[in-house]
Amino acid sequence: METLVYKRPESLLKDGHFTFCPGCGHGVVLRIIAELLDEFNLQKDTIAISSVGCSIFLEKFFNLDVAGASHGRSPCVATGVKRCKPDKFVFTYQGDGDAATIGFNETIHTACRGEHITTIMINNTNFGMTGGQASATTLVGQVTTTTPAGRKAELTGYPLHAAEIISKCDGTAYAARVAITSTKNIMQAKKAIKKAFEAQINGLGYGFVEVLAACPTNWHMTPVESVEHIDKVIETVHPLGVFKDITEQENK
């Protein structure tokens, strides 16, 4: 007797192919989201909000209704959708350039309003799609195309810690930072995203998961080096952790 151990999630398009660079973290996270939507049986009741950056082409991968948003504004579009369709599941999929840089004001206010939506923010510490420029989360010393000598704190300040700041907003139900650098971490990441989804499903408030993800192309590293770089360097600046979780309190 055969046991099916691998199945393509219903929430992914049958003929969709990820078009990301080798070693990029996006594919893993999109797959986690699709699996969870299947597990919650939400494929038919979800509206995904795409953003600007490598996170943009959701409609090419997801078997979901997708609304596009301008750079940084997906939490607002999501707010509009969710307020009109409160019984639908609504999430935004953004990068650090989108959610933490141009759109951080929108992200914070969406959290403060406690919108019943979920944001998955891929943090690869640079603007990936436009060719690797420094973003708000870029590490001090990190070489990017706009900080060729490394980010200098005295010139451009310090990296923004999105998950920690969002955790301070009263409307946030869940805020965490995860990585996808190992099988164990991927399982942790899935658990965190699941919690953030549950926060929305149970009407508790805003869920925010920041995922540290590799950008080998713009980091000028191999995929393996990129993963090591996240574990050894980035996590010292953007530490993994659950910064807020009211879903636990609710369960007690």
Partner: peptide, 26 residues
């Protein structure tokens, strides 16, 4: 019905887009 004082005009018009994509009058 829905009333939100948005954080900016950028936010309010993008909320309008969200509502519009669902075919809702906003």
């Amino acid at each position: 019905r829905v009333f939100i004082t948005a954080e900016s005009e950028l936010a309010s018009i993008n909320m309008l887009i969200g509502a519009g994509t669902t075919g809702t009058k906003a």
